[in-house]
Design a binder for these strands. Structure first.
Lengths: 349, 349
DNA sequence: AAAGAAGTGTCAAACGTTTTCGAAATCAGT
DNA sequence: ACTGATTTCGAAAACGTTTGACACTTCTTT
């Protein structure tokens, strides 16, 4: 007896126990054709009120729901918007929130897709987009894409876009201006040897942040020193090595501008491991103002980027596109702002 | 001429401009059957090396990617895990992060679905689950479900589950203990009139938090007073009315325990509108420790709930289920902790 | 009473895959 | 050469839905 129980217990989860009711089941139970069921459910013209009622009764009883997959296969529109992210780190999570509220009272559902399996390889989102588009989703938002996606068959809006020809609509924040603000702030504090932990060179934001950094240095009459630049690729894991390299120099910088907050967190961690005090021995400023920035200890000085607004703006553009409207402007840039917190201080004399 | 341009410009976005290559296109271009293409792409046995190479060449050229929808239709497994959330508010966003990292080096992709359209009506996630399951996703995680979902045909794990028979695996934090901690802390500060802004009564967490609140009162010998309880439903919008009602009482409470941080934020906002100082005139403690809690001003005292870990744990359970394993324990409860911040103080005398 | 017009339901094709089965071709063994 | 085994490929069914065309009633109209 107990054996039987154990086996059935396994089966419970391994195999489908209650196959969903299909439209065929409903049709059979209601004594009509599947076509009739489909029309009744979708309120199409040509089915009598009596029949519709009977069908809907059965639908209710059987708990039938049309398969999104099957229906999207036939009729191309699904009223679902997709957002493709490499992974759900703080930056894309914030964007997701923004997209969510923007879509809350629209007629679109939201589907966020993250390809865990293959996100190492470049171009994963083009593949994902291709696999989802045309069927599952009516339009897509791509966050920090790894390729300059050429034309797809559905409208696409990019957030924090790729370098390269920007033929598709984009939303980004003022990386150049923000980077200048950050660097200038460090200079005002008295720093002269200012390191830069760069982002992903394939993203426009990263190149602009480096440009802003160099511009601010130039404005202050400080010679740009390539030895003070490392590439951290925007991710915590990938930034730790370069950060260590930067802080291990004989004449290391007294301050570092990290191209995003995750990189800033990485360099602060490395600094701690090397026995450096922040901000005593090293000032650090980040970029983004992810939620974690104000929760860490010490709290992170950074450049605030309106992430939720980036998402909401992109969502708005995409909906407009889906309505067949033409966008008043194809590229939108949102302002940034300096947030002074606890990881910056004048250099030790 | 300019008319033509304008029309084509519209069409660019409204209609598919470059229809995706289908398996038929590849087959035609390679001079083989669709069956052969499918086998070649998926590395099935029975295709010669030469043919496979030729097919893959064409695939490359045409940029073909199999449609997730179509393939999932035929072969039920997709290697995609779905997470269903009402919307992307801070709580579910944190959970999403946890699920994401837990799945990062698994063989599963992650698909987060939020039904913007119909999330008002109860049971929307059962519908969504039904629409996605069996085809698109192999398993699902449901966050704060609005129904006690009965058996589906795919494994499901619930986070912050519904009241009602808990037949499906669940992950939650210690709501009862956390609520006791919160209430006890207010009592220790000297409060006696302590209000409670309750959550969604259909969620077990909400009932347990109320139970914890009452238990802590009882332990301290304070009589429970139903007049000090309002139902805020866990959401900011829905909490503001009840919060205003609570604070407009002639003998209003000197402190309020809000069943989650969003409710706490709502009551603080209401307090400000009524001219009440926090924590001077009113102490507030929340539950969750969402990122916003430490960013607001004043920072929010709250009960920390390991949201990322909730997500990661649920993901782990789901993967185990998908591997056909039986879970060592079907219900997991994670510990909570008090986070003292700036919205709590002893009562004014 | 005949003919056209509505109204109501069904048939069958289609969406893009995967997979089973069988057919053709090649090969090995006698 | 002949048989049998093996390899390689294609035809067709199936997944669950939607939809246009069509057929059958019933109702108007003349």
């Amino acid at each position: 007896m107990s054996n039987v129980f154990e086996i059935s217990f396994h089966v419970t989860y391994a195999d489908p126990m209650t196959p969903r009711a299909t439209i065929h089941d409903v049709a059979a139970a209601a004594g009509v054709s599947v076509a009739t069921v489909s029309k009744a459910v979708n309120g199409r013209y040509g089915i009598s009120a009596a029949t519709t009622a009977r069908v809907l009764d059965v639908v209710q009883q059987l708990g039938y729901e049309s398969s999104l997959v099957a229906s999207s296969m036939r009729s191309r529109r699904t009223s679902v918007i997709g957002i493709l992210v490499a992974d759900f780190e703080p930056f894309s999570a914030e964007i997701l929130k923004g997209v969510g509220v923007a879509l809350a009272d629209s007629r679109y559902d939201l589907l966020a897709y993250s390809g865990s399996r293959q996100r190492e390889t470049n171009g994963w989102e083009r593949r994902s987009l291709s696999r989802l588009s045309g069927t599952l989703i009516d339009g897509a938002i791509m966050v920090t894409p790894t390729v300059d996606t050429t034309s797809s068959e559905i409208p696409v809006v990019a957030i924090d876009p790729h370098t390269g020809r920007a033929d598709l609509p984009t939303v980004e924040s003022d990386s150049f201006g923000g980077a200048m603000q950050a660097t200038r702030y460090l200079i005002e504090l008295g720093h002269r040897r200012i390191g830069f932990l760069a982002g992903r060179p394939d993203l426009r934001s990263a190149t602009l942040r480096e440009a802003g950094y160099r511009q601010a240095l130039a404005d202050a009459g400080i010679q740009f020193n390539p030895a003070l630049v490392r590439v951290g690729l925007y991710k915590r894991d990938t930034a730790k090595g370069p950060a260590a390299s930067l802080l291990s120099m004989t004449d290391r910088p007294t301050a570092v501008f990290a191209a995003n907050d995750l990189s800033a967190i990485a360099i602060i961690q490395v600094a701690a491991e090397l026995g450096l005090q922040v901000p005593g021995d090293l000032s650090v400023i980040g970029f983004d103002d992810i939620p974690e920035a104000s929760q860490m200890n010490p709290t992170l000085t950074t450049i605030r980027q309106p992430m939720k607004r980036l998402g909401a703006t992109a969502a708005g553009m995409l909906v407009a596109l889906l309505n067949g409207e033409t966008l008043p402007q194809n590229h939108i840039r949102l302002p940034t702002g300096l947030v002074r917190r606890a990881t910056t201080a004048p250099p030790a004399i």
